[in-house]
């Protein structure tokens, strides 16, 4: 049976890059345990030799010609960014100085 602890949630949240409080982690831990336990009704189904389905249909990765096209929306795209410098996206420091 699934058991997702508060610590599990905090670790997953860290990996998924979303800050959560201890109280939230506690709540999500209980809810995820309940939801995952509910899904475990599938665990007893015999799936030996059954191929997994990973796509919505058999049509996947239809390729188009690799032709270069011009894209003239750089300035407009930068306008959507929270912070910009010299025509580039700006982010906080990644490494210490």
């Amino acid at each position: 049976m699934a058991n997702i602890s508060k610590e599990d949630v905090l670790k997953t949240a860290d990996l998924a890059r979303v800050a959560i409080t201890d109280e939230e982690a506690e709540m999500y831990g209980e809810q995820l345990t309940e939801i995952l336990t509910f899904t475990e009704k599938i665990l007893d189904i015999n799936t030996e030799g059954v191929k997994p389905t990973t796509n919505g249909n058999a049509v996947t990765n239809i390729l188009r010609d690799d032709k270069p096209v011009t894209w003239d929306k750089r300035d407009a795209a930068l306008e959507n960014a929270p912070e910009v410098e010299d025509g580039q996206f700006k982010v906080p420091a990644i490494m210490e100085e």
Binding site: A2, I4, T12, L15, L32, L36, L43, V50, P52, T53
Partner: peptide
């Protein structure tokens, strides 16, 4: 993210794809 990580990836995620 939980379903895709650790043991759950094999026991739950892959199983769900088969079902």
């Amino acid at each position: 993210a939980t379903v895709l990580s650790g043991d759950y990836n094999e026991t739950h995620f892959r199983k769900a794809q088969q079902v």
